[in-house]
Design a protein around this nucleic acid. Structure first.
Length: 525
RNA sequence: GCUCCGAUCGUCUAGUUGGCCCAGGACGUAAGAUUUUCAUUCUUAAAAUCGCGGGUUCGAAUCCCGCUCGGAGUACCA
């Protein structure tokens, strides 16, 4: 009889959520959904010194933007709350006491300075001090001190921490869903602090207590937790919860795009791509770290890219909707090695998802830029375009988007790519003039105007009159004439099919632009 | 230093029970086609002696051992 799958994403509100953390959340989400289970958001804020205002809200907003939804959590409540560890503070002490009572933990009175000194002392001998079964007798704790002394210190209110008492020489095996069995010997593990002198539990205690009381069945987290997994297994054993201990899956890390090491905030800034889902304004330094959303990435693209960074479907499919990911995700296909983040691939994903937007959706993204450039867009304008007043219909904007969106990776490129549909060029690319605007071009342009004025303004008619009859009929250089026309209309030699462009901006505007170009460029070369 | 984890094209990876792999796909790169231009698109190509060295086997990217390299952890941080 299977119990319901329950997973949690448990970040610390110490800053913006790193993209690696987003991936962890995503994998948890996919796993939960696939198994019809519950996804829980728990905030692990046991370190009051590292608390950053706004971080919790940032995490919620970022995951919401990406479509990673929760069933229970700090922001929506649920039957196993509260979901913020600082709000659960009162319940941890009894668990520390239980461990103390059962001999799995002990009081330690060593001051932080004393520990520092100890570490330096060892370091001087090229060794590393570890508070463990070999050294604890030499420290100030309830194992080394007489019972009365311990009692006296406790009653006098002397600060203390509670440390886990690792049994000597015990092989502890962690069953990891990704890595198989990982075994470590307790002699090499240190007596981690479980309960701090400020009355708060450490991650280790709070995590186990919460996962147990929230009925978590699977812990999917970053590989950086693997070394402390044996401690966690021992805690479940010490509490007598081993029967219901969650299954563990330690995810490979996200690495820097170049060189080695874990992906960090600085890499993103240096290499020009975001490391965070959303923009983050650091409340202390005022520094801005850019996010995927503000850079113009589609949430679907970020999800798709992240899903494939460390997991693969075993097929050649690369584009996935969230639903497809949920259906196909499997822990067995998560890779064991770290993945280097690739900016180009991220852009490619975004281009793919930009193409999936409708013309209307693309137009919505374009509107702010148009406004910024003084272009007015009217929902139900009588005319498609009014170049004299820089006013266009919504329909016209959508038409342009439909024509041009395949050239675009980010919405921010829309204006640069489409501006000539909305305003006439003010200058002409000198290199293009040199290459295309040959002798006699004003005459040819005059002929273009004449044709536009005389033949019906229809694609086929213009094509016949201009390309077939005039250019081909007179043995003119097609590239020369058409590119000069493009230069006159666009200002440079880019853009869609020339006649389509003319049809789109209209007869009058085309003629105006050609006349203006002839005036400005003249009969050079 | 110690402990643990890892190691296939520049990058993400396929390869899960050894032969169908002189290693497949995608991004990127290059060339060509298409186009009056640019971009898109399409086609093709280059690109991994499967980290190195030993074994096991008729046969190994796939199994075993050693080495090397990389990463993580080693806090009253998570």
């Amino acid at each position: 009889m299977d119990q319901q799958v329950r997973v949690r994403f448990a970040p610390s509100p110490t800053g913006p959520l790193h993209i690696g953390g987003v991936r962890t959340a995503l994998y948890n989400y996919l796993f939960a959904r696939q198994n019809g289970g519950a996804m829980i958001l728990r905030i692990e804020d046991t370190d009051q010194t590292r608390f950053v205002p706004g971080a919790e809200q940032y995490i919620i907003e970022a995951l919401d933007w990406l479509g990673i939804k929760f069933d229970e959590g700090v922001h929506i409540g649920g039957p196993y709350g509260p979901y913020r560890q600082s709000d659960r503070k009162a319940m941890y002490k009894q668990y520390a006491d239980q461990l103390l009572r059962d001999g799995w933990a002990y009081y330690a009175f060593d001051r932080p300075e004393a520990l520092d000194d100890k570490r330096k002392e060892y370091e001087a001998q090229k060794k590393t001090f570890q508070y463990d079964c070999n050294t604890r007798e030499t420290m100030e704790n309830s194992l080394s001190l007489p019972a009365e002394e311990v009692q006296r210190r406790l009653e006098s209110g002397e600060p203390y921490v509670v440390r886990f008492k690792f049994p000597a020489d015990l092989d502890i095996t962690v069953h990891d869903l990704i890595r198989g069995e990982v075994t470590m010997n307790s002699n090499l593990l240190d007596d981690k602090v479980l309960f701090k002198s400020d009355g708060m539990p450490t991650y280790h205690l709070a995590n186990i207590v919460d996962d147990h009381s929230m009925l978590i069945t699977h812990v999917i987290r970053g590989e950086e937790w693997l070394p402390s997994a044996p401690l966690h297994v021992m805690l479940y054993r010490a509490f007598g919860w081993e029967e219901t201990m969650p299954r563990f899956a330690h995810l490979p890390l996200l690495l820097k795009p170049e060189g080695n090491g874990k992906l960090s905030k600085r890499d993103g800034d240096r290499l020009g791509f975001p490391v965070f889902p959303l923009d983050w304004h650091d409340p202390k330094s005022g520094e801005l770290s850019s996010g995927y959303r503000e850079r113009g990435y589609r949430p679907e693209a970020v999800v798709n890219m992240l899903a494939l960074l460390g997991w693969n479907p075993g097929t050649e499919q690369e584009l996935f909707t969230m639903e497809e990911l949920i259906a196909q995700f499997s822990i067995e296909h998560i890779s064991k090695s770290g993945a280097k983040f690739n900016v180009e691939k991220a852009k490619w994903f975004n281009h793919e998802y930009m193409q999936q937007l409708s013309d209307a959706e693309t137009a919505d993204l374009f509107l702010p830029q148009l406004k910024e450039h003084g272009i007015t867009v009217e929902e139900n304008a009588a005319e498609e375009h009014d170049y004299q007043h820089s006013t266009f219909s919504r329909q016209f904007v959508e038409k342009v988007c439909g024509m041009m969106k395949e050239r675009i990776t980010f919405p921010s490129e829309l204006w640069e790519t489409c501006c000539y549909f909305f305003e006439a060029p003010t200058e002409y690319d000198p290199a293009a003039i040199k290459k295309r605007w040959k002798e006699g071009m004003p005459t040819h342009m005059g002929k273009v105007i004449e044709i536009l004025n005389t033949v019906p303004f229809e694609y086929e008619a213009i094509h016949k009159a201009l390309l077939d009859d005039y250019i081909v009929g007179n043995g003119l250089n097609m590239g020369q004439v058409m590119n000069s026309l493009r230069l006159a209309v666009v200002g440079k030699t880019v853009g869609p099919d020339m006649l389509t462009l003319v049809m789109t901006i209209g007869k009058e505007e085309t003629i105006r632009r050609v006349q203006r170009a002839v005036e400005k460029i003249g009969d050079v070369n």
